[in-house]
Design a protein around this nucleic acid. Structure first.
Lengths: 205, 205
DNA sequence: CTATTAAAATACCAATCGGTACTTAAATAG
DNA sequence: CTATTTAAGTACCGATTGGTATTTTAATAG
């Protein structure tokens, strides 16, 4: 056991709580008092463990990326079955991470991208990178499909990757606008029809 | 001429300035001091003319909707040439309203939709309506196309309308992520390929 | 001129903001 | 037991927040 007074809450638990806070309310709308209430850690403890509000925000975003964003993005790029089926599963996964579970609504990266449209260039650049990582994951999967003949050589993978990367925002905004889950899933099926025939089985059997 | 001391700035000009402020920085990040600086109207004048900060925000959003959002949404639903060409022009128009001009970046309605993901239910419901108005405009155009035979009777207009309504968010987030204009226009061409053949001339001549 | 009207401008309010210095509590080492 | 270490908890800081009461300025009406 360590030497001094035992800690009430583990810093990692506090970080998780702070993440949910920033995720659901955004950076500006989250006050230090909110963070104190959410983490259960007193203010001086927060500053001692994480630095100031902006540093904590970056740590929270980093935790989200490691724990939730990267896993989905990476799984998205890996083999699976056919191209169409893999893209369908990827968009479904993104959709359920947007709507389902007890987690705050939407994607933390997308939410932050829209909040930080000007101002702090440091976090803004990081967010551009993260959105591009999602795009690149789609691109990798599409390039592989072209190599394997799952995507015709005539198809250009880059515009397709940009397009699919954008679909998460499309799903997010329509979810926020109140569309029921079945309509959001129908959106996914529509978005998959941009794939040339022969990229896997059809979506409407 | 009116009776008392002449006004320094017209309330409508102040409203325009406030709109740009909220539009570019968001509700939370915009302070009354910012609004005073942007409008040139002293704080008591703002409260006298518009009420409190939240009321001013709603007025600013209303002004945006009347002046910029509704015109684009309505033009989107009206005849034109072929379905594909009309949708292309609509998405191009949305894209250039997102990127071009000297106006703040992005769409005020989309930005607000992402900022207000929980909290004030009043403005949140209004934003849902506005997003649905965009969707409904796409739907009207698609229904007309189906009646005119420009869209096959086998195609289901509703999922297509939801899909196209989402594309503005897709364009917005990829623009924010640093994609150059030509790549964004290529995204539009990809998104149009969900239309069945024979909905107007092809996008790749 | 004076009275009146309406807006601008100054000054101020309590509350909250992000951030810190300081004290207290709870553990171990000797 | 006392000394030491580490974190929790309290109290406070100046600055800024959203919001007003009050005064001053500039016009017209008589």
């Amino acid at each position: 056991m360590p030497r001094g007074r035992p800690r009430k809450i583990e810093p990692e638990d506090a970080l998780k709580a702070a993440m949910r806070c920033f995720w659901s309310k955004g950076y500006e709308a989250t006050s230090m008092s909110d963070l104190v209430a959410a983490t259960g850690m007193a203010k001086p403890g927060i500053y001692a463990n994480f630095g100031d509000k902006e540093q904590l925000y970056q740590r929270a975003l980093g935790h989200y990326v490691e724990e939730l964003y990267h896993p989905i993005v990476e799984e998205l790029a890996t083999p699976g079955t056919s191209l169409r089926q893999d893209l369908r599963q990827a968009l479904e996964k993104i959709l359920h991470s947007i709507k389902g579970s007890g987690l705050p609504m939407g994607c933390f990266v997308l939410n932050s991208t829209f909040e930080c449209r000007e101002g702090a260039p440091a976090i803004g650049q990081r967010l551009q990178e993260l959105n591009m990582e999602r795009r690149d994951a789609f691109l990798r999967r599409l390039l592989r499909a072209r190599d394997e003949g799952d995507l015709p050589a005539s198809a250009d993978p880059e515009p397709l990757a940009n397009y699919f990367a954008g679909q998460s925002a499309a799903l997010s905004v329509m979810a926020q606008s109140g569309l029921p889950l079945k309509d959001l899933e129908a959106m996914i099926e529509v978005s998959l029809t941009v794939l040339p025939a022969g990229s896997g089985e059809t979506g409407n059997p």
